[in-house]
């Protein structure tokens, strides 16, 4: 059984279609990257999956249970970190987690142990100030802790790193990587490097519609298009002229002394490019073979 199953999910606001007949399945134990540009419908989908919004059509199932029919049961198995976690500013971290534990009716023993573990995990154990004085990164970490108070099976994370500085981002991503060992994580973002780092499966959304759904490896293999970067000591114009008209060359881009060559035939390019360099007698500083980044794939899929 999938952890999350979405079938023909549609959400409209007046005449605007925010989510358009979305169908996808998230396997248990996966870290699912839910990608899309701003306004693609990611947050709306997450709000439906967490019961905060109702679908206009279609249905969403969590462990086979329809969200719209049994939200109370589902809410015991999920945790949600919104894009901008918000708290009662007058509370302290431990107080807020205690309040959340109250909502789940946790026993005193269970709650103390879990709160201590979580505060330790999100590195807020030594912080004794009101939440209203927290930095953005601290709020994000506390947000993660509150989403874990019930030892949730599924964690919904809405753009958890988008507003953080590089250190805060690394901290949160490390935590997500750690959590991925024991939970299904549904992770919406538009930061592709984050997806490459922690996700094993992705779905891309654009204008409310699913554009692609695949595991990360398959996606990269399907869209693999080797890219060669050659850097010369001096102008590469002569080399560029030699590339013109070759059938295995898809695209050539020149930036000062560097040429980026895209090819549709890796073997031929590997054999022929060094020969062409030798023919020009241009001094070569660097030759690199790379692949399309997820960002390139994303742009390619969306275009």
């Amino acid at each position: 059984m999938s952890a999350i199953e979405i079938q023909d999910l549609t959400k409209t606001f007046g005449t605007k279609i925010a989510v358009d007949q979305l169908s996808l399945a998230v396997p248990q134990g996966s870290v699912f990257g839910f990608l899309g540009p701003n306004g693609a419908g990611k947050t709306t989908t997450l709000r439906i999956l967490t019961g905060l919004a109702r679908p206009s059509a279609g249905q969403a199932l969590i462990f086979g249970v329809d969200i719209s029919k049994n939200l109370q049961e589902i809410s015991r198995r999920i945790g949600y970190l919104p894009e901008n976690p918000a708290f009662y500013g007058w509370m302290r971290a431990r107080e807020y987690l205690n309040f959340c534990a109250d909502l789940f009716n946790l026993s005193a023993e269970e709650r103390n142990e879990r709160i201590n573990t979580l505060l330790d995990f999100v590195k807020l154990n030594d912080v004794d100030q009101q939440i209203q004085n927290y930095s953005r990164g601290m709020k994000q970490r506390l947000g993660l802790a509150q989403a874990l108070i019930n030892n949730s099976d599924i964690l919904f994370l809405d753009e958890p790193t988008s507003a953080l500085d590089p250190i805060g981002r690394k901290e949160v991503l490390d935590m997500i990587a750690d959590l991925s060992k024991s939970k299904t994580i549904f992770f919406s973002t538009h930061i592709l490097s984050d997806v490459e780092r922690v996700c094993d499966r992705v779905a891309m959304l654009d204008k409310g519609r699913l554009v692609i759904e695949s595991d990360l490896e398959t996606l990269k293999n399907d869209y693999i298009e080797p890219v060669f970067t050659l850097e010369f000591d001096g102008s590469p114009d002569l080399f560029t002229k030699l590339l013109a008209g070759l059938i295995w060359v898809v695209d050539v881009q020149t930036h000062k002394q560097t040429i980026v060559v895209r090819t549709n035939d890796l073997g031929t390019a590997q054999r022929e490019l060094p020969k062409l360099v030798a023919r020009t007698s241009l001094p070569l500083r660097r030759l690199e073979v790379g692949e399309l980044s997820l960002e390139d794939i994303f742009m390619k899929v969306l275009s």
Binding site: S75, Y80, P85, L103
Partner: peptide, 13 residues
């Protein structure tokens, strides 16, 4: 308006 309740309402309340 502040989003405090959205976070709370995903719990069994």
């Amino acid at each position: 308006a502040k989003g405090i309740l959205a976070q709370v309402l995903t719990k069994p309340v």
